[in-house]
Design a protein around this nucleic acid. Structure first.
Lengths: 66, 66
DNA sequence: GACATATGTAAAATATTCTTTACATTTGTA
DNA sequence: TACAAATGTAAAGAATATTTTACATATGTC
C-alpha cells in the first residue's frame, strides 16, 4: 500500500510531530507510515483523511502486492 | 469505529466466507470485524470498499471514542 | 427429525502495529 | 561555524490484529 501523507503534510505545512499530535499517535508512527514501514489501522487512515479533508482512497492506495 | 459490512454483504448476497475469500482473510476475521471485535488494517478497509464499490468512509465510520 | 449451510464464539499461536527511548543525520539560519 | 528544528532510524516492549482449530447454535430444506 502507498500513501501520500508526506505530500499532504507539506500542503498543510505540518511537521511529523504536528500531525502525530493532531491524530494522537507518536511521531515515529507518522515517520514509519510515510516510509511504508507498516500498514496503519483503519482508524488512523480515517483520522488522517478527515484532517486533510480528502477521501481515504485519495491518500491511501492499494498496491499490486496487497 | 463502526462499519456496515454486514449490510453490504446482505446487499451483495455474500456469506462471511465468500467475503473472506474475496479479500483474502479468514472467515473469523470477517465475523470479528462485523462484531466490532477489532479495528481492521487500512488494506482490508480499502479492499472491502473496492469490492462493494463504495468509499471507505461510507463503510467505516469513526466513533466518539476513536 | 436429519441434514447442510451460515453464523457466533473461544482459545492459543503468530504476526503486526504502535509506543518509548535514544541517537544520528539533515536542513535552514544566525 | 554553531545552533535549533525536522527528519531518519533502530531496538525493545506493549498492545492489537489475524490465523487456525474447533465446537456451538441457528436456519432452512428434505
Amino acid at each position: 500500500m502507498k500513501n501520500s501523507i508526506k505530500v499532504e503534510r507539506a500542503i498543510h505545512s505540518l511537521t511529523q510531530e504536528d500531525l502525530a499530535k493532531e491524530i494522537g499517535v507518536s511521531r515515529q508512527t507518522i515517520n514509519a507510515m510515510e516510509a511504508n514501514k507498516y500498514v496503519p489501522s483503519t482508524v488512523l487512515a480515517l483520522k488522517i483523511a478527515r484532517l486533510f479533508k480528502k477521501p481515504v482512497e485519495e491518500i491511501f492506495e492499494l498496491s499490486e502486492e496487497d
